[in-house]
C-alpha cells in the first residue's frame, strides 16, 4: 500500500461496513423474515428479486455487495491480526466489544464464504434459491447451529460497528453521547438478532 494512505483505507473500511454492507444486511434479514409468514410468503418475497433484469442484478450484486464486502472483509482481517487482545488484564465493557468485534469479524469471513457457496454459487450452477433450499440446509442441526452463530455474529458486528463508526467519524464525542449510542446500537443488535434467528428457525 502506498505511503500515507492508511487513513483513507481505514475510513473507507469504516464507511463501507455501514454503507452498503450494513444496509444490505438489514435488507437481507428483512427479506428472510418473510419466512416467518410461511413458505409461500418467503418464495413470493424472494421471487420479487427475479423481476430485476439478470444483468442489472448481477452488476448490483458486485457493486453493492461483493466488492465492498470483500474490501471490508480482507482489510478487516488485517486489522484484526494486528491487534494484541488484552481482555484478561483490561476487562472493561469496551475492551470486550473491541475483542468481540475482531472475533466475530474473522468468524464472519468463514461463515459468509460458506453461506455464499451454499446458496449463491449453487444458484449459478442452476439450483433454485427458495424456501426448500434453506429448509434442506438447516435440517442438519450442525448447520442450523452454524447459521444461528453466523447470524448473531453478523448482527453484533454491525451493531457494534455502528457504534465505532459514530466515534470514528467524530459524530459522538462526549462520554454521554457515546453511552447513549451504546444503548441505541444494543437495541439495533437485539431487533436484528430476533429477526434473523426467528427467520432461520422458520425454515426448520
Amino acid at each position: 500500500m502506498s505511503k500515507d494512505r492508511e487513513f483513507l483505507w481505514r475510513r473507507l473500511h469504516s464507511l463501507l461496513g455501514v454503507v452498503p454492507v450494513g444496509l444490505f444486511l438489514a435488507f437481507h434479514l428483512s427479506l428472510n423474515f418473510t419466512a416467518v409468514g410461511g413458505e409461500e410468503s418467503y418464495n413470493t418475497a424472494t421471487g420479487m428479486m427475479e423481476l430485476v433484469p439478470h444483468s442489472l442484478l448481477l452488476a448490483m450484486e458486485w457493486i453493492i455487495i461483493y466488492i465492498p464486502l470483500m474490501f471490508h472483509a480482507f482489510y478487516g482481517v488485517y486489522i484484526a491480526f494486528t491487534a494484541t487482545n488484552n481482555v484478561k488484564r483490561f476487562s472493561t465493557f469496551r475492551n470486550w466489544m473491541f475483542a468481540l468485534q475482531r472475533f466475530t469479524g474473522i468468524f464472519l469471513v468463514i461463515f459468509i464464504a460458506w453461506h455464499i457457496f451454499q446458496t449463491r454459487v449453487q444458484k449459478a450452477f442452476g439450483e433454485e434459491v427458495n424456501f426448500d433450499m434453506m429448509a434442506e440446509i438447516v435440517a442438519n442441526p450442525v448447520m442450523l447451529g452454524f447459521y444461528i452463530v453466523g447470524i448473531l455474529s453478523a448482527t453484533f458486528h454491525l451493531a457494534n460497528g455502528l457504534w465505532s463508526f459514530l466515534v470514528s467519524w467524530g459524530i459522538t464525542q462526549s462520554k454521554k453521547s457515546q453511552q447513549i449510542a451504546t444503548y441505541i446500537t444494543l437495541l439495533v443488535f437485539v431487533i436484528l438478532s430476533i429477526m434473523g434467528v426467528a427467520a432461520i428457525l422458520a425454515f426448520v
Binding site: E6, A83, M97
Partner: peptide, 11 residues
Amino acid sequence: DGGLANCGNSQ
C-alpha cells in the same frame, strides 16, 4: 500512516 484512524476504540 500509523495515525489517528488506527484507533480501535477499546477505550
